[in-house]
Simulated assay, not measured.
Amino acid sequence: MSLIPKMCGPMASVPLRWVVLAAILVPISASATAQSTEPDCQCAGVLSLVDAADAAVAELFEARAAGIIRSGSDQVELVGKYRALIDFNPDPPPSDPFEHAALGELNFLTFRPREADLLFAALLDRDDLIGRLAWQRAMQIRRQAFERPDEVRTMMRDYQARFAPNEADMFGVTQQVVGFAGGHFASGETDEAIDLIVDHITATPATAPFRAFSIYRFFPEEIAASGRESEVKSVLASKLVTLRSLRRDWDIQSRNADEELALRASAPEWYWTQQRVAPGQTLRAARVEQLDQLIEQLSDYVE
């Protein structure tokens, strides 16, 4: 069954295949904001904000996995098609947190940092998954689009004090660590970059396949040339031991169906797509697959 009852304009040829594939969203940059364009379609109100975000993120992940999305402008064009199907400027903003976050995400994905930041800022007092996402998006926008690194460093500390690592959120502050480490490497501050990476891996508990344990894959050449690759491998080897133990524990432990349903209901579908959890898949099943992949990758790297 098609999600959209009536197509028009550029949406007429857009396939809505709800396939979840691994991808990393194109980050917001100051230059990319100028690429935003208005879609030529007058169909606002066809979709709810949550349905639009669900469809846009699903198609974006599929397109990136297929190599179709190669630039920020490609991403804006794809997500912008869904923008034409919603009321993009509700006044007042949505009171429902899922709708509010969806509007923020659609702004984020179409490189409207000011609008997205205002929307996510209103969600920063939440302690749930929507709150975590709001903090992560606000940090990304303020570091990369607004160029306020000191503020983001403070936010990273506040985030870690506020939110304990959770199986339902694989990212935490890792994207910001990647950004700051990349800046250090680019500036020739190799030791600062390695310190940041090692500290982040060390501070992350091996209770799920968190993205922190894959951070070395962003900088393979830089780490290899740093003279401290053995240090990075050592801390990852220690985590690998615990992750293997966790995998054995997960073989004999499971959550009941009610717990899984409650988890899925705590965030919209587009959130789970970004978490690499497929429609109809339990969170634990997705994490088991990701944990197996992580263990294999770390084994190849450190052993």
Rank of each mutant, 00 (worst) to 15 (best):
I4C: 11
S13T: 12
V14D: 05
V14I: 15
V14S: 03
L16G: 01
R17S: 12
W18K: 06
A22D: 03
A22H: 03
A23R: 09
S29R: 14
A30V: 04
A30C: 02
A32D: 14
D40F: 08
Q42F: 03
G45T: 04
V50S: 07
D54L: 05
F61W: 02
I68N: 13
I68Q: 15
I68C: 03
I69H: 07
S71G: 08
S71C: 10
G72L: 00
S73Q: 15
D74N: 10
L78K: 07
G80I: 08
K81H: 14
Y82N: 01
L85W: 09
L85F: 06
N89A: 15
P90K: 08
P94I: 11
P94M: 12
P97C: 10
G104M: 13
E105Q: 13
L109A: 03
T110G: 13
F111H: 14
F111N: 13
L119E: 06
A122Q: 14
A122C: 04
L123G: 09
D125V: 08
W135A: 06
R137D: 09
A138T: 15
Q140M: 14
I141D: 10
I141L: 15
F146Q: 13
R148G: 02
D150A: 10
D150S: 08
D150Q: 11
D150C: 00
V152G: 09
R153E: 15
R153N: 14
D158I: 08
D158M: 11
Y159N: 09
Y159R: 09
Q160V: 08
A164P: 04
P165D: 12
P165L: 10
N166H: 15
N166T: 05
F171I: 07
V178Y: 12
G179T: 15
F180W: 06
G183H: 07
S187R: 15
T190N: 13
T190C: 14
T190Y: 08
D191A: 15
D191C: 03
I194L: 10
D195L: 01
I197M: 05
I197W: 05
V198W: 04
T202H: 14
T202N: 13
T202S: 14
T207G: 05
T207E: 12
F210H: 15
R211M: 09
A212T: 07
F213L: 05
F213A: 01
R217M: 14
F218C: 01
I223G: 05
I223R: 02
I223A: 04
G227F: 05
S230F: 04
K233S: 13
S234W: 00
S238Q: 12
L246Y: 05
R248W: 00
D251V: 06
I252F: 09
I252V: 14
Q253P: 00
R255F: 12
R255Y: 13
R255E: 14
N256K: 05
A257G: 03
D258E: 15
L263T: 15
S266W: 03
A267G: 06
A267L: 06
W270A: 03
T273F: 14
Q281T: 05
T282E: 11
R284I: 13
R284F: 08
A285G: 02
R287Y: 11
E289V: 12
E289C: 05
Q290V: 02
D292I: 06
L294W: 02
I295S: 05
I295P: 01
E296F: 03
Q297I: 06
L298Y: 06
S299P: 02
S299H: 00
D300G: 11
D300K: 08
Y301W: 07
V302I: 10
V302A: 06
E303R: 10
